[in-house]
Design a protein around this nucleic acid. Structure first.
Lengths: 343, 343
DNA sequence: CTGAAAGCGCTTACAG
DNA sequence: CTGAAAGCGCTTACAG
């Protein structure tokens, strides 16, 4: 029988579809009794207007696009939960893309979102697009989408709104806490420095060392790719060094996992044999490793903030570009906990 | 300047928009040189046709709807990764909804998907809709959406395609493995039995006990809600029983977490003090609890299979309804591992 | 308060 | 091989 359309309703009610449209949208005034009659028919037939027809007609859509690099990483899962909460509250809908940290898929997702004429875009770039040509191309594409965009978690030096964590400060504080605990040989398992995420973290680490008058040692710095397997290998190397660090920073949740795997495999434990501060919570780890201190990033909040920023941008297209920086504090800052860092 | 439309391209090329449409869609033949000319203009202007206008015109869309109860649960994260993989491969797009296991949000999501005239629907019901009236209402809504639907992970007794895990068999096997290890007092931390997910698991448990001639003991059965906090409480109760079980089944990943939290808090360990088989992997747990045996469900595969089933349903609307049952084997079945279950 | 008409950006028979 | 025209299901000035 096909979907019921506004025409069907209009006919059954004996009015024009303009009038039906008015009651649907509660726009200009409609005589109370015709409104009721129309509403009754709508209810009876469970009619709901086509969002796509409406979108075309109004030249605007109510769908938001989001692209994340790893849907199955709890960090992004939390972000998505935050995003969907605000989406729901505003009667929007969400087209969700997974880029798998692959720039090809990233482009493809963006193209798709462009075709879908999304009303706004939440975007976590798959890579840094540090190559100038690539960046130009990305910028062009983003502009073609011609809709507000809010960057998520990863800066790429383009002029868009964004929500980020203060990872630099987080790592700085962590490093400092370790130093205060008496450590001077502090290792770091990071990503390669051509990724801005890694550079920022490295900066926090180096700065804290220098501020404490400690000369950074290159052999204590390990650069991988934020994946567990790589971190596992690097951590094994680190742990078997002759003159190894007494404390280690692991720069994301996957990296921490790799580190602990390597550590436990050696029959060592924390903080007895070595101390570690990680970036991001690892829930299951807390079951037994109750004194794991980590840099706490509230991804749920990031999702909410980003979506709110997007909505505000949609409302005020001309307001100045803004970046929201969320803090990334240590999960514990009480003296009690920090004492455990003592060498 | 507004988005470029098919009209702009047509004018610049000096042809009708019908012809432009033909080159975009590669439909009927177009003279090679006009095709090239048009394509050049399209490329130059980075034109891509509006999916919404096309959808309206073709009376069909290329977007799929998905509703999951917890975006931030790794289990559903994996499912989404599987889904997006097939989505990408078929040039579809995904509208993603999070129901938070709340039937109000569930309805709302479905309504929204209906308005968006999705081409197909992957649906994990928030609740069982076991109330007859509720179920009728849900069925009606699902039918109004008037599009193929594939149920994910949760059966609700409606006549749709679906992909499920064989949890009953999984729990059966787990129970049997414990029995073979000499256990007769086997506890279970399950969800309330008005949820079909819990009933199925309970069935597997009871059946295995009976098949072994063991009389099920009510006091060893605990019914919560599949959340960690609840499981923690129930597990604490179980662990402090006078005549407590020597082995326990935990019926999802959150439940296992709650169990281990309670266990470790008591300073007990596994398998020394008690044995546990869980449902679903807990990656971080493997860092130290390397002998945790669990019922393995490949959520990534479930996502892929479900999306493939949906596509095949879209292609063959009249084929008979089918359910795909994915197996849920023990993570280890070697004698070596199972030996650890020995009482 | 209400309707006729134009328009949103496409596709697709139908002619030629 | 190509174009004019109708239509997809809505919304929105414009009249009345």
């Amino acid at each position: 029988m096909g979907e019921t359309t506004i025409d069907d309703i209009a006919k059954e009610a004996g009015v024009s579809k303009a009038t039906v449209s008015r009651v649907i949208n509660n726009s200009s005034s409609v005589a109370p009794d015709t409104r009721e009659k129309i509403q009754a028919i709508i209810d009876k037939r469970h009619y709901s207007p086509s969002a796509v027809a409406r979108g075309l007609s109004k030249r605007t859509s109510s769908t938001i696009g989001v692209v994340v690099p790893e849907v199955d990483n709890p960090f992004f899962g939390e972000i998505l939960r935050g995003v969907t909460e605000i989406i729901d509250r505003n009667n929007l809908s969400l087209i969700c893309c997974n880029s798998d940290d692959d720039s090809k898929k990233d482009y493809k997702a963006l193209e798709m979102l462009k075709e879908n004429r999304v009303r706004g875009l939440l975007y976590t770039p798959a890579t840094d697009y540090s190559d100038k040509k690539q960046k130009k191309r990305l910028e062009k594409l983003l502009n073609e989408i011609d809709t507000p965009v809010v960057l998520l978690d990863r800066k790429i030096g383009l002029d868009f709104d964004g929500v980020y964590f203060d990872d630099r400060q987080g790592i700085y504080d962590a490093t400092q806490a370790l130093i205060k605990g008496g450590h001077t040989k502090i290792g770091i398992i990071n990503g390669t420095l051509d990724r801005v995420l890694a550079r920022i973290r490295q900066d926090g680490y180096l700065e804290a060392l220098r501020d404490a008058g400690i000369e950074p040692e290159e052999r204590y710095m390990f650069f991988g790719d934020f994946r567990m397997g790589t971190s596992y290998k690097l951590s094994s190397q680190l742990l078997s060094m002759e003159d190894r660090p007494t404390a280690v920073l692991t720069c994301n949740n996957r990296t921490s996992m790799g580190f602990f795997k390597a550590l436990f495999e050696r029959g060592e434990s924390m903080p007895k044999d070595i101390v570690c501060i990680g970036l991001d919570r690892i829930e299951a780890l807390e079951l037994f490793q109750t004194d794991f201190v980590y840099i706490k990033r509230d991804a749920f909040k990031m999702g909410r903030k980003a979506m709110e920023l997007l909505i505000s941008r949609m409302a005020f297209p001309d307001k100045p570009i803004s970046s929201i920086i969320l803090d990334a504090p240590l999960s514990r800052e009480d003296a009690e906990s920090l004492k455990r860092f003592k060498k």
